[in-house]
Amino acid sequence: MITITACMIVKNEEETLERCLNSLKSLVDEIVIVDTGSTDRTKEIARKYTDKIYDFTWIHDFSAARNYSFSKATMDYIYVADADEEIDRENQEKFLFLKEAMLPEIEIVQMYYTNQLEYGTTYNYDKEYRPKLYKRLREFKWQDPIHETVTLDPVIYDSDIEIIHRPTESHAKRDFNNFYVVLNKGERLSPKLIHMFAKELFIAGDDEDFIKAGTYFNEWQKDTTRTLEECVYIQCVLAKYARLQGDIELLMKVSLKNIASKSSSEVCYELGEHYFELGDYEEALIWYYNAAYETECQLNIHYGGDYPLKRLAECYGKLGNVEQMNAYEELAMNWSV
């Protein structure tokens, strides 16, 4: 049977930490908790479950804190947990079975992350795989009889274990602030972070968030070293930013670039919103239809689904076409992720 260290980074988690640790205590052999500055009862609660509690000065870098927690682990595998997660009885049994039956060549185990949409900030699905269990020490082996090379891709196993995500609030504002801390240091966001920033804006951001972020995205669109995919994400954000700011020139500029390269549901939807606000419902229909049926969403799947379908119903209602209005209302109502 393998041994497991649960590694956590926490800050002011007194509302959820005990629930999480109760669900983990019989599954793991060691619990490592790294506290990044709690001022509540977090460490007091943690001491009921482990004496391996470490302080880490918060430097607005989750990776640094995670790496520090990993450095304190001593078991065969590391399970990464957040304080707002829990594992129910059925999945605890699955976890223990996995622990007993784990093949030594497996280096990463993915588990289902569930209940994501209630307070999701970067999620399009209520249940999806996440890597949760990692082999602490990895062995590198040579492969192929000639032109030999070291195996770099990890061996990943997709389990049927489900982790329940039960946050007490949305983390969107915290995440946006962390993006700005990085940006204000003058650091360049990686393609992954450009994607995550744009995705989080479309899933959890409000108009003020788009307006604040848009000034940064407007600069990034001028960077000719950005990849096509980065440009598409930037264009999606800028289309909404431009509409909110009433900057029609910018709206048309980014929309035309988007349509000429990789048409996105988000951009078509924003064009529909522009014409809807003008009262030009026939033109709005074209763009909402393209958002729903002719393009792919890049950041939030609702922009290619129920959002434009609802707007299509409203447009037909404004134009007096009750039959089409009812049809699209039904499609929107029956649309699901």
Rank of each mutant, 00 (worst) to 15 (best):
T151M: 09
C297T: 07
N290I: 13
C297A: 09
N334M: 05
N300H: 14
F70K: 08
D76V: 00
W335K: 03
S159W: 01
K212E: 08
T36P: 05
L271D: 02
M333L: 15
G37K: 13
G272M: 01
I45F: 00
F140D: 09
Y113G: 06
E118Y: 06
Y123G: 15
E118F: 09
G279L: 08
R47G: 05
D84M: 02
Y289D: 03
V337W: 06
D158R: 12
K72G: 03
C297F: 08
T122L: 14
D175H: 07
P154K: 07
Q92L: 05
S38Q: 14
N67E: 13
H302R: 11
E229F: 10
Q235E: 12
G272E: 01
N184I: 04
I234A: 03
C231H: 12
E323L: 09
D84F: 04
K185T: 05
K43I: 11
G246P: 15
C231E: 06
Q116E: 14
L117D: 04
N177T: 11
L278G: 05
L137V: 11
V155G: 04
C315W: 03
P167G: 12
A64W: 04
F56V: 02
E13H: 05
W335H: 05
I234H: 01
S69L: 00
I59E: 13
R243F: 13
I59M: 10
L17G: 00
I78L: 03
K199H: 08
D35E: 06
I194C: 02
N91P: 07
C297L: 12
L103C: 14
H60R: 08
N334I: 11
T16Y: 10
G305Y: 05
A292M: 01
K127L: 15
E14S: 10
E107D: 12
E187A: 14
R188K: 10
R66Y: 10
P308C: 02
S63R: 15
E30P: 09
I259A: 06
Q110S: 08
D207M: 09
I234W: 00
L117R: 03
L299E: 03
Y288M: 03
E200I: 03
I161S: 00
A65D: 11
I4C: 00
G37E: 04
M8R: 09
E273F: 04
C268R: 07
G304D: 06
I259M: 09
E86R: 08
E270D: 07
I4T: 00
V150F: 12
E30S: 08
Y157F: 02
T5C: 10
N258P: 08
K25W: 11
S261K: 11
F56Y: 02
K253Y: 13
H274M: 15
C268P: 06
E18G: 06
R188Y: 07
T5K: 03
L250N: 02
I301C: 09
L98S: 06
H60A: 07
G305H: 05
R66K: 11
N124S: 15
A313G: 03
P167A: 11
T121A: 13
L244F: 05
S264L: 13
S170C: 15
R166T: 09
C315T: 10
I108D: 02
A239P: 14
A213Q: 02
W58E: 01
